[in-house]
Amino acid sequence: MTLISPACRDALQHWLEGQKALAGAADNTITAYQGDVGDFLSFMTLHHGAPQGLRALERISVADMRAWMAHARSGGVGARSLARKLSAVKNFYRWLAEREGFEPTAVLSTRSPRFQKKLPRPLAPDAARAMIETVDLQHATAWVAARDSAVLTLLYGCGLRISEALGLTGADAPLPRVLRIVGKGGKERVVPVLDVARDSVAAYIRLCPHPLTGSEPLFRGVRGGALNPRTIQDVMARTRLQLGLPATATPHAMRHSFATHLLEAGGDLRAIQELLGHASLSTTQAYTAVDTAHLMDVYNRTHPKA
């Protein structure tokens, strides 16, 4: 950041503050934005041989953008990561151009590098059930085994992110039939809680030796602190080895499985979008691993011709 002019540094900071306060961007997103745009501004300083003030940023050309992208690729930045960086730079430039009153065509017209999107790989229904039924065999301590089973049941039964499940507090217990979840970007959604999930969490609560009240985390580590996501990742890794499942059988795969299995059962794509908390329907479509033929079958059954 030392290579960036004070005016650009201030502008970047104001943009980041706006992204957090107005757009509701998560802390991790803000950190990524700061790094991506900061690296871009630093490159332009080195590329032009002098710190680039706001007026200089208005004169960024297509050639400058190509030079930045070539530099990033030569430094080992993959196409997917470069596309993310370019998206952050474009978002910053839209804001800056509106504030400063200039035309950001050179930046906004820059094409994102093409890359193969990695499709999520959910578990088969029997594999998801086996994971939940087997995970509690990985720990000899009854309450820890019940905890791990309860977390995985929430991921698969409610489509929660691991951060959302571990973000539950004692105030959420006993689990109601409907949970209000605050997801990415502060987006709130309502999630029905199946009886099997409520029972699984209740079984963990009965066995847990730590007080589970108020704003304290609902799911605890063995020493009583907040449960680390890594612990769930590790126990799933041991379980998938025992079951002979691939390395893609991760906590996030349970959420993928929730969405895919609902759609396979004839669930409405927009309803699943709401349950997952996706802002875009296209994100939900990419999240599910249902083939086109099956999607058409679901469509024809739910939208019969007159």
Rank of each mutant, 00 (worst) to 15 (best):
L86W: 02
K117I: 10
A146E: 10
L123R: 11
C158M: 12
R73E: 04
L108D: 14
A70N: 14
E100A: 15
R99N: 13
L154V: 03
Q116T: 10
G101I: 04
A150F: 07
A70W: 14
R99T: 06
P104R: 05
A171V: 15
G75K: 01
T153E: 08
L82D: 00
A130Y: 01
V89Q: 03
V144Q: 08
R94Q: 09
P122R: 05
S74V: 06
Q138W: 07
M131Y: 13
T153H: 07
P113R: 13
L82E: 01
G101K: 04
A127W: 02
N91V: 13
D148M: 07
T105S: 15
G76E: 00
G159H: 14
A127L: 01
A128I: 02
F102H: 08
L108Y: 11
A127V: 02
Y156C: 01
A127F: 03
S74Q: 05
F115T: 00
L54P: 07
E103I: 15
F115S: 00
H139A: 15
S109R: 11
R55Q: 09
L166A: 04
A146M: 05
A72N: 09
A145C: 11
V62N: 09
V135R: 07
G167T: 01
D126T: 09
L96M: 11
A127S: 08
G157C: 11
K118H: 15
A173E: 03
L96F: 08
A124H: 15
P113N: 13
R59V: 12
K90M: 12
L82V: 00
K118D: 15
G159N: 07
